[in-house]
Amino acid sequence: MNFWDNFKKDEQLLIAHRGLRSLRAENTMAAFKQVIGKYKIAEFDVTFTKDGIAIIIHDDTLERTSNVKEFKEFKKPYKVADYTYEQLLKLDFSSWFIKKDPFNTIKENKVSIEDLKKEKIEKIPTLKEVLLFLKQNNIFANIEIKDLENTNFHEIAAKEVLKIVDETKMQNKVIISSFNHVYLKQIHDINPSIETAALQEKEHPKDLINYLKSLNVKNYNCDFEITDEALVKKLNDEGFYVNVYTVNQKEDIEKLFKWGVKSVFTDY
């Protein structure tokens, strides 16, 4: 079963980027809870702790989205891969959202600061925890495996992520994407029925169509900055789905759907 068979053929789909990160701290359970009833698909990033637990965080360091600097046991450059899951559970991954108000949603009264202050502090979620939550709420997932080339997990990342997808019985409800296209080949080799997507920014690979065919992907997840109508048509004509990130202006989203884009990643 194709991932997109879960939806109506001409359905224009928005994907909540790192959960709805304009409403709650990105890649936290609070951000994924905001997706319920709003969007059908959530996107999030997967990497690994020092002891091999698959966790959800975008950056390879902890400084931007946690209070790591308050703890003496954590040292610069605060790399995620240097700490165990148990150590990371000591950190607060949500209070920064109130201080920084990254999308001005608190300032513009789109998010209630009183509600935020009443909510519990968010801990770092595991991949298994997030997939089970999404499954329970009938939300689909775009799992991005971070580029782990310079870590101990480069060789096993794809296999470990697939193992958790299998455990949670989410095989037909996920797309797995990565900027490291080696992982996509590995996923296809292990389980060709899992949908994969090549993530791309800055510029397109040479001989794009043949390159994507060599990866055995059905999806091209490309940056809005390098997307145009001719590209979308060319890819669609060759049977590929085009999914564009990260787009927050309504007129841009409407334009992309008019071009034939399958889905759009958004923060709102």
Rank of each mutant, 00 (worst) to 15 (best):
N236F: 09
Y241E: 12
D228Y: 07
L199N: 15
K213C: 01
S193W: 09
A230G: 05
E203I: 15
I194E: 02
A198G: 10
F240M: 10
L199K: 12
K234F: 06
D228K: 04
K233W: 01
L208H: 11
K202L: 13
V232Q: 00
G239W: 00
A197D: 04
L231N: 07
H204S: 12
K233Q: 07
T227F: 01
L208W: 07
K218T: 15
P192L: 01
K233N: 09
L212C: 03
S214F: 09
E229Y: 05
D228M: 08
N236A: 03
L212V: 03
H204F: 14
E225V: 10
V232M: 00
N221H: 14
A198H: 07
F240N: 05
G239R: 00
L208F: 12
P205N: 05
L199R: 11
K206R: 13
L212F: 03
V217G: 02
I226D: 05
K218G: 12
K202C: 10
G239H: 01
K218R: 13
E225G: 03
L215I: 01
K218D: 12
Y241K: 14
K206T: 11
I226S: 11
I209T: 05
K233M: 00
S214K: 06
V232P: 03
Y220I: 07
A197V: 08
I194K: 05
E229I: 04
K213F: 02
T227I: 02
L235T: 08
E201G: 13
P192Y: 06
L231K: 10
V217A: 05
E238W: 08
A230N: 13
A198E: 09
I209F: 00
L208Y: 09
E195I: 02
L199M: 15
L208T: 14
K218L: 06
E229L: 02
S214E: 04
K218Y: 10
E225N: 15
K213L: 07
P192E: 04
D237H: 12
C222Q: 12
K202R: 13
Y220Q: 07
D223R: 13
I209S: 05
C222R: 05
L231A: 11
H204V: 10
L208N: 09
Y241V: 03
L215S: 03
G239T: 03
I226V: 11
A197M: 09
D207H: 12
K206H: 11
S214C: 00
H204Y: 14
D223Q: 15
S193K: 15
D228N: 07
K202I: 14
A197H: 08
T227M: 02
Y211M: 06
T227D: 00
E238G: 02
D223M: 11
D237M: 04
Y211N: 08
L208D: 14
L215K: 03
S193L: 15
D228L: 10
E225W: 13
P205Q: 05
L215M: 04
L215N: 10
L231Y: 13
V217H: 06
I209V: 12
I226A: 08
C222N: 15
T227L: 06
Y241P: 06
D207L: 11
I226M: 07
E203W: 13
E238V: 05
K234S: 12
V217I: 03
S214R: 03
E225Y: 14
L215A: 01
E238P: 02
